[in-house]
């Protein structure tokens, strides 16, 4: 028998004091005051531990309260006007809607029409990148005094068919380690992210030359391959390429995150 259970055993055998419950109630009532006094008076490592514990308790409590609040809201909602959105015909009602999030809904197009602006990009302003940040000068020649060669220090997209020029003529080097073929593209309305192939760099806002080189920095518009999402145009053709804007700094993160422009 564990040592601490003698108390329980004693209680089982002899019962409890007549005023136990009253004492317990009083102790519980005093508990808040005791905790407050403790919080005021503790110092040093003891205070730190105490506060951490207290913070955890409070967070859990808040969560529980919010949960109850949500439950109340849902149960008290009148049943009559609970007509769901996204009506489906009877033959689709029992079907799994796993492909659902992949379909571009009509509402998106309407919203785009209402907004008016054609290029309403997620990141309207991006920091311009100067050439000396973008390129590293490479010294060549026997005496290392020729300085016409540049190495791109940012992430690039290089097309499938690209072959490097001979070293004598290659002015810009795009390092293999910084070449990317895929991007993580988020559909802003469906809140889902897909890993899609890059088709090309549409525009790098810093400079037309960067666009030509296929440099991908924050704010760059890239074209991605959305054929597997099953988007369809009005005339019933499959949409192949769509534009997306890069939202992170790929050279720092090692991946490209982008938002689809719809």
């Amino acid at each position: 028998m564990a040592q601490g259970e003698y108390i329980e055993l004693h209680r089982k055998r002899y019962g409890v004091r007549m005023d136990t419950h009253e004492r317990q109630r009083k102790r519980n009532a005093r508990e808040a005051r005791r905790r407050a006094a403790q919080a005021r008076n503790l110092t040093g490592i003891k205070a730190k531990l105490f506060n951490k514990q207290r913070f955890k308790e409070k967070a859990a409590m808040k969560k529980a309260i919010n949960q109850h609040f949500e439950n109340d809201k849902q149960s008290s909602r009148p049943r009559d006007d609970s007509v769901q959105d996204g009506a489906l015909p009877a033959y689709l009602l029992d079907r799994e809607q796993q492909a659902r999030s992949k379909v571009l809904s009509n509402t998106l197009k309407q919203k785009r029409k209402e907004k008016g602006g054609k290029w309403d990009v997620p990141l309207p302003k991006v920091r311009a990148i100067a050439e000396d940040e973008m390129f590293k000068v490479i010294k060549t020649g026997k005496r290392q005094k020729k300085q016409w060669k540049r190495m791109v220090t940012k992430v690039t997209y290089v097309g499938e068919a690209f072959t490097r020029k001979a070293p004598k003529y290659e002015r810009f080097i795009r390092p293999m380690g910084l070449r990317f073929k895929k991007a993580h593209v988020t559909h802003p309305e469906l809140k889902t992210t897909f890993c899609l192939g890059i088709i090309g760099v549409k525009k790098n806002p810093s400079s037309a030359m960067f666009t030509q080189l296929g440099v991908i920095t924050r704010g760059t518009i890239i074209e991605v391959n959305v054929s597997e999402l099953g988007l369809v145009t009005n005339s019933g053709k499959v949409v192949w390429g769509k534009y997306a804007q890069v939202t992170n700094n790929p050279e720092n993160d090692g991946c490209i995150n982008a938002v689809l422009c719809v």
């Binding site: 009509n106 197009k109 009005n234």
Partner: peptide, 26 residues
């Protein structure tokens, strides 16, 4: 179809007679 079109098929020629786009969704 789900691809937002209706299509009319001809039984004699076994071909697409007419493509009817116009709906903007399924």
């Amino acid at each position: 179809s789900k691809d937002s079109t209706c299509k009319v098929w001809d039984m004699r020629t076994r071909k697409l007679k007419m493509d009817l786009p116009g709906h903007s969704d399924e």
